[in-house]
Write a protein that binds this DNA or RNA. Structure first.
Length: 252
DNA sequence: GCGACAG
DNA sequence: ATCTTGTCGC
């Protein structure tokens, strides 16, 4: 009935084709809406993943945390832990992280209304205009924004006084926000939003002294708390209700 | 062939 | 992303 999980993962990895994944991204691009297409925003979901190596295997903890907007209070949180088989390949991040992110996102949506996703990674500032934020946005058919700490694609220039990332034709892919000491973040549309609206929304979710917008920052803290827990006890695969585990959320 | 390269 | 010691500064 149940195969050796070690072999199962090796099998997944060997069947994963970067070429086909790239082609999937090119095809999915046709579903992208790069205009503002959303109603009032009341609830924003922040997404992030943390990893822990256990011998040969890598385990991921995908976190989806819901915050009210603009008050930015934590309303709900779901985490999903599972083995991650697909390696990190620049430009194909979504195929690695979606495995643990999708279950968390679906469960969060099953009991909440989500108006916007803020994802750790790029949106259209991507070689094929389909980074993980666009991937999440299109799959869930919801507005989404990518927030990345490092550049992946695009030329940096200044447009009307603002730092931006542009493509080969000079079209704006992302706005670069800086929070003091040279720490910048790249904000790009995922789906159903423009670069400028994305930047305006992210700016409104930045709290003083912090580099990342609240949804991303909280998701990051929770995923890292989970990682610490995974290192000591070996919890199996499955869902974790963050809000019923005080140690995971009491520090925001 | 040589760099660049989200998390 | 994760690993990992000391160190600079508020």
């Amino acid at each position: 009935m149940h195969e050796n999980p070690r072999l199962a993962c090796r099998d997944v990895e060997s069947r994963f084709s970067p070429q086909i994944a790239m082609e999937a991204q090119r095809l999915l691009t046709s579903k992208l809406v790069l205009e503002d297409s959303y109603g009032p925003i009341r609830y924003v979901a922040g997404l992030d993943v943390a990893y822990v190596k256990r011998g040969e295997e890598t385990v991921g903890a995908g976190v989806a945390v819901l915050l009210s907007y603009p008050s930015l209070e934590v309303e709900d949180c779901v985490a999903y832990v599972a083995r991650v088989c697909i390696p990190y390949i620049p430009g194909l991040l979504a195929f690695r992280e979606m495995n643990v992110l999708a279950p968390a996102v679906l469960k969060l949506e099953s009991r909440n209304k989500v108006d916007l996703y803020v994802v750790d990674g790029h949106g259209i500032a991507h070689p094929r205009r389909f980074g993980i934020a666009s991937h999440i946005g299109v799959v869930m058919d919801k507005p989404s924004i990518g927030v990345a700490k490092k550049r992946l694609y695009g030329r940096e220039e200044i447009w009307r006084g603002s730092r931006v990332l542009v493509d080969e034709d000079g079209r704006i892919l992302a706005l670069i926000l800086e929070s003091g000491r040279g720490s910048k973040i790249y904000v790009s549309p995922g789906h159903r939003i423009t670069p400028f609206s994305a930047a305006r929304l992210v700016s409104s979710m930045l709290r003083r002294g912090h580099r990342l917008p609240e949804p991303t920052r909280v998701a990051d803290r929770i995923s890292k708390s989970l990682r610490a827990r995974l290192k000591v006890s070996d919890m199996g695969i499955g869902f974790i209700d963050c809000l019923s585990n005080r140690s995971l959320y009491r520090f925001f």
